[in-house]
Computed example of a mutant assay.
Amino acid sequence: MHDVIQMLKTKDLKATPQRISVLKELGQKKHPTMDDLYEALRRENPSMSLATVYKNIATLKEKGVVIEVNVADGKMRYDIYSKPHIHIVCQGCGAIEDVDCDANLLQYQNCLEENQNVKIERMDIIASVTSCPMCSKKS
């Protein structure tokens, strides 16, 4: 929980109970949809409204703490952006896996910044696959 509070402080955000709950749930690396996130949070705090979850996600996205992962089913998934990483999204079963970013990707980012004369705040990379190890476990 200390990491979550520190993450909020570095982005000049108050560590409200709602934000802490949202980040703790996202920290489980399940990449939930908004509905999944809301249901999980309501189990912990029945008085939390869907509007509160949307508002907190919007604030966390705006500050770069949370990112959206766009998958084929059209339902946005959410994840904490604690460090650069790639999302491998399976088109077969919908599984999402985080893969750490290596030095080559950071070199590519530097190259893009130089060639395009821009400062990249964050690279959101999604690699789509047609099947994955999770697919074979489900069959």
Rank of each mutant, 00 (worst) to 15 (best):
M1L: 10
M1K: 03
V4A: 06
Q6P: 12
T10E: 14
T10K: 14
T10Q: 15
D12V: 14
L13N: 05
A15Y: 05
T16F: 06
S21F: 03
V22G: 02
E25F: 01
L26I: 01
Q28W: 09
K29F: 04
M34F: 07
Y38I: 03
A51F: 06
A51L: 05
V53D: 06
Y54H: 10
K55G: 03
N56A: 08
A58L: 03
T59L: 07
T59S: 13
K61N: 00
E62Q: 10
G64H: 08
G64T: 01
V65W: 05
E68M: 04
V71E: 02
V71M: 10
D73M: 11
K75N: 04
M76N: 15
R77M: 08
D79F: 01
I80R: 09
Y81E: 08
Y81T: 06
S82N: 13
H85W: 03
H85S: 11
C90N: 02
Q91I: 05
C93A: 12
C93W: 10
G94M: 07
A95D: 10
A95Q: 06
E97V: 00
D98E: 05
V99C: 10
D100R: 13
A103F: 10
A103D: 15
N104E: 12
L105K: 05
L105N: 00
L106E: 15
Q107P: 07
C111N: 15
C111S: 14
Q116M: 15
V118I: 04
K119T: 11
I120T: 04
E121T: 12
E121P: 12
I125G: 10
I125H: 01
I125M: 05
A127L: 08
S131C: 00
S136N: 10
K137I: 07
K138A: 08
K138P: 09
S139W: 12
